[in-house]
Nucleic acid binder design. Sequence first.
DNA 1: CTGATCACATAGACAGACTATGTCAAAAAA
DNA 2: TTTTTTGACATAGTCTGTCTATGTGATCAG
Lengths: 97, 97
Amino acid sequence: MLILKTLARGADLHGFQIADSIQEVSEDVLHVEEGSLYPALQRMLIKGWISGEWGKTEENRRARYYRLTKDGRKQLEQELERYGRVAQAIARILQPA
Amino acid sequence: MLILKTLARGADLHGFQIADSIQEVSEDVLHVEEGSLYPALQRMLIKGWISGEWGKTEENRRARYYRLTKDGRKQLEQELERYGRVAQAIARILQPA
DNA sequence: CTGATCACATAGACAGACTATGTCAAAAAA
DNA sequence: TTTTTTGACATAGTCTGTCTATGTGATCAG
C-alpha cells in the first residue's frame, strides 16, 4: 500500500527513490530493506499493479522506473479502504475504556 | 498488542473470551482464529507477559483464565507507543498531498 | 585502475497467521 | 443410556512476507 501510494503521487520513481521517499516522509519511522522492496515490486509487476521501464538516473546509472497502472490505482483504493477499517477497529480496541 | 490490551481491562479471560471480545469490540472487522490465538498465548506465557490459571467456566467447562503480569503491562506500553508511531508514520504517507 | 557506491536481484532464515486436525469433557439429543 | 454436539485448548503443516546476506554490473571518485 505504501509503495502504491508513493507512486500515486504521480512521479515515476525507481526502487531506491521509493524506499527513500517512504523513509523520509515517515520521518525515519519506516524503513524498506532491499530484500523486501525488490520482491514486492516484482509481485506488483506480475499482478499488473505497476509497470516498469528501464532508464537512466540523473547520475547516469541504469534504473527501473515504476509507475502505477489503472489496476494499481484500483488496488490502492481497496487497500486504503481496508486499512482504514482495520485502523479504526484497532482504535476502538485501544480506546482507554 | 490487542490481546494484551483486552486483558488490560482487568477481567481474567480465557482464550475464547479474548477472541470474542476482540471481534466484538472491533465490530467484526478483526477475527482471531484459534490457530493464531493459542500459539500467541503460549508465546506470551513463555515471555512472562501473561499468567494463566485453570478454572471452570460458568457452564462448568475447564478453561484457562489469563491475566496480565507486570511485564505484560510494560510490554503493552511499549507496543502501544510503537504502534502509535507507526500509525502516525503511515498516516503521513497516506496524506492526500 | 582500484575501491566505493548505486541500483537491481535472489537465496535462505525466520516469524507469525491460517487451515486442518485432534483431544477431552460436559451438555444436549437420540 | 448411548450418541452427538459443543466449548475450550492445542499442535502440525502450509503459506506469505520480511529480513539478512550475498552477488551482479556499471559508474563515479581518488
